[in-house]
Nucleic acid binder design. Structure first.
Lengths: 159, 159
DNA sequence: CCATAATCATTGGTGCCTCCAACGATTCGC
DNA sequence: GCGAATCGTTGGAGGCACCAATGATTATGG
């Protein structure tokens, strides 16, 4: 959205859902700009970070851990593999699987992305004091938790 | 995103930008579900509400007021006009313009959408106390204001 | 007054994120 | 062993936001 300039504010502009989604748009824009400045997008960061945190994994496991749909994994991994930030190797123990692992270049890219991300947090929260940032984070966490419980996260008991 | 189930939480899950965008996803999903239950989407609500609040206007003015890109106006107005929620008439005073106005049916639809929207706010904020809702709203408003000032809203001085 | 600039509606495209359905291949559970 | 589940892949969808270019029209200023 470019700007709701022109005269008075619209009616819906005080609704929490509006505030939330619009603020999120700004956040998303900031993050996306930071990422694209090093030739990446959100999915790439999430995949690289997940790989570093949990180690090599199949695309399916990677998708579950990073919250990316299995269908979208292919393209994202292709993009990463094309730039050799990630390696895709067949799993000898299960021929259905590919094992994805982080390369050294991928780790370096991840460092760059984290840098961008950290800068964004600052930009994003710049009008708030440290205490306010803390409170906002806490409130959002509670909301997110609640809705994650209701909606997604079947959280298979076994496995 | 379906769910980040599987094991431990990922690293980025405490970042404000993540909390914000994910919570906004839930908000957006709730709102979209409410809207689509009466066959509408966000743009439709914004247009109908803008029309009611400011009265009939050209597509360009409508776009500026509702924060919808001029290019996206055509399709949205078509959809509304097809269902006769809105009327598109040529402006006799300026043959470049169409004058869009709200019909009685459009007003009724707007009432339905507002109902959905109100229900969503409750759903969205259900884990928070009234005071917490207030604080969240206030913090988000500050953030949004700040970023609107920086980014969009050229706010033409004249006009 | 006329040429240039600006505005309006429209078309058609891009990108990102999310989700769905279907497929063949493979492996698992009973 | 056989049906059920999983894995990778393809192709599609939808919502939102944005950009570029076009022809028509109107406004501007020299």
């Amino acid at each position: 959205m470019k700007s709701p300039s022109e005269e008075t504010p619209a009616r819906w502009e005080s609704l929490p859902s509006w505030l939330l989604t619009q603020t999120a748009n700004h956040a998303h824009r900031l993050v996306a700009e930071g990422f694209s400045s090093v030739g990446a997008r959100g999915y790439h960061y999430r995949l690289l970070a997940t790989l570093e945190q949990f180690g090599p994994a199949s695309q399916a496991a990677l998708g579950r851990r990073s919250g990316i749909h299995l269908s979208d994994m292919v393209a994202a991994i292709n993009e990463l593999a094309d730039r050799e930030l990630v390696e895709r190797a067949p799993d000898p123990a299960d021929r259905r699987r590919n094992i994805i692992s982080l390369t050294a270049a991928g780790k370096r890219q991840l460092r760059r992305l984290e840098k961008q991300l950290a800068d964004c947090q600052d930009d994003l929260l710049s009008p708030l004091s440290p205490e306010e940032r803390q409170r906002l984070t806490e409130l959002l966490s509670r909301l997110l938790d609640h809705h994650n419980r209701r909606t997604g996260t079947p959280e298979e008991p076994g496995r």
